[in-house]
Design a protein around this nucleic acid. Structure first.
Lengths: 253, 253
DNA sequence: CGGTACATTGAGAAATTTCAAAGTTGGTGG
DNA sequence: CCACCAACTTTGAAATTTCTCAATGTACCG
């Protein structure tokens, strides 16, 4: 909706195998921008549609990027799930966002040489870098593209604000319900929800790190959602049984 | 440090009475950008350095802006303290950031006609609007200015990430200590800290809404900090007694 | 001199964490 | 194909943190 028909964005090559979605904003797809960002560099100088060697693979539960490392661009998740997180010295960590295929790790950080967060693969992940130089040049040439980028960046920021509300004001059950609903909507945008079921490879530890809970309590809440026939998260799959009730739990009250 | 010497930014008029600081990033001032943003429009079409009528005043504890209202630009806080917050229908609210004089309400949202958050005055506040049209034109003309804006926006985003870590992973005492230290550093940047004392007009209710706690618990934590001779927040003033200990409490562990 | 909003204190309740043990799952090599 | 291993999930019980409710005290404003 926000970006749907901006033809200017289509001037950048897109990768047909990628279904791009605006990070963190279910319901508001940004296909041109999304595809552009993963596909922009085909035929160019070393982007992610170049030779297969330009892509990297990272196994599940391993880090794609560690906070503070220098990088020539922003990582793009091409295949699989990843999470962006902050690691605390005492071993705790906070997951900041969940990254799905086609998504930039962070639009806001697109001009930085290093990032304050780390990235971990949830499943096996294929990824590449979106080089700083090329994006910068494009954004400066193309006012419409720049505008689209502004909005993408604002959407990311507002999503962080929503998460702050969740963590500051809402109960364990509400936070977990909101996460599940949020991912349901993102998968719906991609037309990848069949029979109210979609892939959900996050472990309970990862759900806990996202919601600011302990894995034990996360397990209890998930069990309750299952027992109450609201949804069933297990074996890497989410099955939504009572969508209305899930929505009611996840709603901002 | 990030923006300190970017001469390009000085091409925009600055207001000498305003000490601008990059929102939410203590230690990293952005004087040119900050002053530009409040002072850019003197002699122009209705900006905040125009006739006194261009400024508005809002009394303490009253709203400057309500989520969803349409606006011709981003509010700038010229004098006084304000908070950016999200209001929940059930009466709870989450404060998203604290706004000091000279600061934009949100750099990321600079091109939007309306915002998903509200703004409330903490003290009496003098404020104005930074009109969309002018900023946009400037950013498109001036690559260095654009670059500065990118960084400002990224800093804002990373600050939101830090808050997520606070709310998700840290205790009441740690969150409150972090808030106090954060504001101490921002006031230090402005050279407004004398004898480890600086203005602190937030009520306990507001501190609670910022940290995701109840006012009662906030009161207990503040009492403890006072009893332990770490710092004393009262009567609109913060007095830091044992800075090392405060730092230790606020540190990310 | 009220009056209203704000701060403080106490006691009990609720949500969440911690610790510890047992059960399950999925993958690997023999 | 089975046995084993490591990682993940589940369950119980007790401890801790934070919240809720309610009452009292205090400061500021007109």
């Amino acid at each position: 909706m926000l970006f749907g028909d901006n033809e200017a964005l289509s001037t950048l090559v897109s990768a047909p195998d990628i279904v791009p979605v605006m990070p963190q904003s279910p319901g508001k797809t940004c296909r041109p921008l999304g595809s552009q960002f993963c596909g922009a560099l085909s035929g160019g100088e070393g982007g992610c549609d170049g030779p297969p060697t330009a892509h990297r693979f990272t196994a599940a539960r391993r880090n794609i990027y560690r906070a503070g490392e220098s990088s020539d661009g922003v990582p793009v998740i091409c295949e699989g799930w990843a999470v962006r997180f902050f690691q605390l010295p005492n071993g705790k960590r906070q997951i900041l966002s969940v990254l799905l295929p086609g998504e930039l790790v962070s639009a806001s950080a697109i001009f930085e040489r290093q990032f304050p967060f780390s990235i971990q693969a949830v499943t096996e992940v294929r990824h590449c870098l979106l080089p700083y130089a090329r994006v910068r040049a494009r954004l400066q040439q193309d006012a419409d593209l720049l505008d689209c980028w502004f909005r993408l960046s604002a959407a990311e920021y507002h999503d962080a604000d929503k998460r702050l509300v969740d963590l500051g004001q809402r109960t364990a059950q509400e936070r977990i319900a909101a996460l599940i609903l949020h991912l349901l909507l993102r998968f719906q945008d991609r037309d990848e929800v069949v029979d109210d079921e979609f892939p959900f490879p996050m472990s309970q530890q990862q759900i806990a790190d996202f919601t600011g809970l302990t894995p034990v309590h996360t397990c209890r809440v998930l069990s309750q959602l299952r027992k109450n026939a609201i949804c069933d998260i297990s074996h890497g799959t989410a099955k939504v049984i009572d969508r209305d009730e899930l929505q009611r739990l996840a709603a901002i009250k």
